[in-house]
């Protein structure tokens, strides 16, 4: 679905005369393959290159060196851009700054409008997408009246209406309260399971990554750690701390009292503890 081949990306900062002032390497020879239907969580400290990585999948950024291929389309070819963006949608961090229109329904239609979908078909897609995220009843309301979590779901619906194969979430829960967070992560999992949409979730919240198929930990534009949540979190607190991460609380507690195996959920913990007591 998504393939990165030795991708390097440099932010070049220039002074007033246009001379190169500084070069920051945000991605450093990154190679990665994401399969269709996978649920990937991307972790890493602020400035580790996560957002730059995400923007390459949607062709908002293009590699300085190397190649990114999304659903068979090379992002460096300008003719492919609309195809890529329709297939790989993106949900951003700030709920306010990604809603364009004055009603929920019109905002969800924004993507399909850009794609030139005929009106009848469009209304169907919009309604379907809104039902999927549970906001059909709000379709005529102003987005300004919605909560943060609801706005993020409008953004998700806006992408669903484009019928994507893949959705990239760039810290979608950072500005939400716990209720809103839970809802967004649940929605992402549901889309992954029911509709087979590939999900790439960038987050700072360790608990949100527990249900992922694979975790990728980034540092300085490279992949520092990779594996199932169990594999990654069993590396222990010290290793993860280096990358600006923490072990999920439950896992950390299990490690501290010496329970065997890498425990991720509360159920697993209770079972393991009972066993240890016997």
């Amino acid at each position: 679905m998504v393939r990165f081949e030795n991708v390097t990306f440099e932010y070049i900062r220039r002074d007033e005369e246009g001379n190169v002032d500084s070069i920051t390497t945000a991605l450093d020879e990154l190679s990665l393959h994401i399969k269709k239907g996978e649920f990937i969580a991307v972790l890493g400290s602020n400035g580790s290159g996560k957002s730059t990585f995400a923007r390459h999948i949607n062709a908002l950024l293009k590699p300085t060196e190397g190649k990114v291929v999304v659903a068979g389309y090379d992002t460096t070819d300008d003719d492919n851009i609309l195809e890529i963006r329709q297939r790989a949608g993106m949900v951003f961090q700030n709920p306010d700054n990604q809603i364009v229109a004055e009603t929920v329904e019109e905002d969800v239609a924004f993507g399909p409008e850009n794609m030139g979908i005929p009106t009848d078909e469009m209304q169907k897609r919009v309604d379907e997408a809104l039902k999927k995220v549970g906001l059909y009843k709000k379709k005529l309301e102003s987005p300004n009246r919605l909560s943060g979590g609801q706005k993020q779901r409008v953004a998700i619906a806006g992408i669903l209406a484009m019928k994507p194969d893949c959705i990239i979430f760039d810290e979608p829960t950072a500005m939400l309260d716990p209720g809103g967070r839970r809802m967004i992560v649940e929605t992402a999992h549901e889309l992954n399971k029911k509709d087979g949409i590939t999900i790439i979730l960038i987050t700072h919240n360790m608990e949100e990554t527990v249900g992922a198929d694979r975790i990728i930990v980034m540092e300085k534009g490279r992949i520092a750690l990779e594996g199932t949540p169990r594999q990654v979190f069993s590396k222990g607190e010290e290793t993860l701390k280096k990358y600006g991460m923490e072990v999920p609380v439950i896992t950390a507690l299990a490690q501290k009292i010496g329970l065997d195996g890498c425990i991720l959920t509360r159920e697993e913990f209770v079972d393991a503890y009972v066993k240890a007591l016997e």
Binding site: I250, R266, V270, L277
Partner: peptide, 18 residues
């Protein structure tokens, strides 16, 4: 509102009679 994971876990252990 969320309760800290530790609290939730202790609650689970309590429910399990441990």
């Amino acid at each position: 509102l969320s309760v800290p994971q530790i609290s939730l876990l202790m609650g689970d252990l309590e429910d399990a009679g441990i």
